[in-house]
C-alpha cells in the first residue's frame, strides 16, 4: 500500500509538471493580451507531432526535436498573434473565435499529414529509477519534471528580473498605463505568445513518447487547463502552478484508487468548490478593469 501511494505521488508530480507548463502558457497569454487561446491544446499537440515528424520519421536526436518543438510551436504562437490576435486586439470575443478556427486548422493539418490514428513513438530511453522497492520513475517522465522546473524557474526570473519581464507584468495589470511608459503592447504580446506557445510545445514534445499522440489530443488537455486556471485564479501565474499541482494530485489519486471518470468529475467538483468558496480562484484578486 505504501508503494502504491508513493508511486501515485510520483505519477502526480509528473502530471503536475506538464500540466503547469500548459496552464502557465495559457495564463500568460490571457494576462498580457486578454484573450482566451482555445487553440492552446492544439499547440501542445503540435509539439507532440514535431517529435513524430523529426524523431520518429527522420531520426533526429530526441532532445534536438524537443528544442525544435519549442521553437516551432513558439513560431506558431507568433503567427497567431500577427494574423488574428493583433488585428482583433480590441475584440476579445473575436480573438477567441479566431483561435477556435486556428484550432481546427492545426487539427486538420495533423490529420492530413499524419492520419487520425495514434502515432506510437519509441521512447528515447526505457531506463528508470527504482526509488524504493516497487516505486519507479522512468527517465522519460523525469525529463518532463526537470523541464517543467527549469523552464518555469527561468520564466519566473525573466518576469522578476528583466526589463521585458516587468513590462510584461505591467501590460497584464494595466495596458493603458503600460503604453504610457513607452511599452509597446504588440511587442510584449509577441514575446508572450512565443513563450506561452513554446511552453505548450515543449510539454507536447516531451510527453509525446508517453502518451501516443493523436490529432485530437488537445481537447482533454484544454479542458484540464481551463479548470486549472479557474482554480488558480485567472491571470495568476503562481496560481496556475499551485492549481496544476493540486489538480494533478487530486486527479491522479482518484484515478488510481477509483477510476478515471470519477477523477474527471472530481476535478470539475474541485473547480465548483473553489468557485463557491472563492469565486476569483485561489490566488485571484478582484476583477481587472
Amino acid at each position: 500500500m505504501t508503494e502504491l501511494i508513493l508511486q501515485t505521488v510520483v505519477n502526480a508530480v509528473y502530471a503536475a509538471s506538464y500540466m503547469s507548463l500548459i496552464a502557465v502558457g495559457l495564463v500568460l497569454i490571457f494576462g498580457v493580451m486578454g484573450v482566451i487561446n482555445f487553440a492552446h491544446g492544439e499547440l501542445y499537440m503540435a509539439g507532440a507531432y514535431t517529435v513524430v515528424a523529426l524523431y520518429s520519421q527522420v531520426g533526429v536526436p530526441f532532445f534536438v526535436t524537443v528544442v525544435a518543438g519549442l521553437i516551432f510551436v513558439g513560431l506558431l504562437g507568433l503567427l497567431m498573434e500577427q494574423s488574428f490576435f493583433k488585428p482583433l486586439r480590441d475584440n476579445p470575443l473575436g480573438g477567441l473565435i479566431a483561435s477556435i478556427g486556428f484550432l481546427l486548422i492545426l487539427q486538420t493539418s495533423a490529420v492530413l499529414g499524419f492520419g487520425v490514428r495514434m502515432a506510437h513513438i519509441r521512447p528515447p530511453t526505457q531506463a528508470k529509477f527504482e526509488l524504493i522497492e516497487g516505486v519507479v520513475l522512468t527517465h522519460q517522465r523525469l525529463f518532463v519534471i526537470i523541464a517543467a522546473i527549469v523552464l518555469l524557474s527561468l520564466l519566473h526570473l525573466f518576469l522578476r528580473k528583466t526589463k521585458f519581464g516587468w513590462a510584461m507584468r505591467a501590460c497584464a495589470q494595466d495596458r493603458e498605463a503600460a503604453a504610457l511608459q513607452g511599452i509597446s503592447l504588440s511587442q510584449i504580446s509577441r514575446i508572450a505568445m512565443f513563450i506561452g506557445a513554446g511552453l505548450a510545445g515543449v510539454a507536447g514534445a516531451l510527453t509525446a513518447p508517453l502518451v501516443s499522440p493523436t490529432p485530437y489530443m488537445g481537447h482533454s488537455v484544454i479542458v484540464t487547463a481551463f479548470i486549472i486556471i479557474i482554480v488558480g485564479g485567472i491571470g495568476q501565474l503562481e496560481g496556475a502552478v499551485v492549481a496544476a499541482v493540486l489538480y494533478a494530485f487530486v486527479h491522479t489519486f482518484v484515478t488510481t484508487f477509483y477510476d478515471g471518470v470519477v477523477a474527471d468529475i472530481t476535478g470539475l467538483l474541485l473547480m465548483l468548490l473553489v468557485l463557491v468558496i472563492k469565486p476569483t480562484g485561489l490566488f485571484g484578486t478582484k476583477e481587472r478593469a
Binding site: W166, A167, R169, A170, Q173, A177, L180, Q181
Partner: peptide, 18 residues
C-alpha cells in the same frame, strides 16, 4: 494607474522602459 502587483522600484523602472 500605478501597477498594483509590481514593487515600488519595478513601477519606477518601467518608467525608464525606453
Amino acid at each position: 494607474r500605478i501597477f498594483p502587483d509590481l514593487t515600488v522600484e519595478e513601477n519606477l523602472r518601467t518608467g525608464a522602459f525606453l
